[in-house]
């Protein structure tokens, strides 16, 4: 897992870093609601220098999907 992405997710959802795994979905996180989704979008755009489309934002309901969308935006998550 990309260190910066783990930091963003842990900060936004108030989770411990070890809880951030690719299989994590919004159903596993009690406070992953629409307002947290907005916080997530702002944090991802700031940390990775990307601009997310509304279709991306709606799709981002798991760590695996966030990974996939960021990679499609050209973000190198292996770095």
């Amino acid at each position: 897992m990309n260190d910066k992405l783990v930091t963003v997710l842990a900060d936004v959802f108030g989770l411990r870093r070890e809880q951030i795994v690719p299989q994590l979905t919004k159903d596993d996180v009690g406070n992953w609601d629409s307002l947290k989704q907005m916080d997530l979008v702002v944090s991802l755009e700031r940390e990775f220098g990307v601009e997310l489309e509304i279709a991306d934002i709606i799709t981002m309901t798991s760590v695996e999907k966030i990974n996939r969308i960021l990679k499609a935006k050209g973000v190198d998550l292996e770095a």
């Binding site: 919004k26 609601d33 629409s34 307002l35 989704q37 907005m38 979008v41 934002i57 709606i58 309901t61």
Partner: peptide
């Protein structure tokens, strides 16, 4: 209910 609900497209 928020004004905008991103989780309900």
């Amino acid at each position: 209910e928020p004004l905008v609900n991103l989780m309900n497209p």
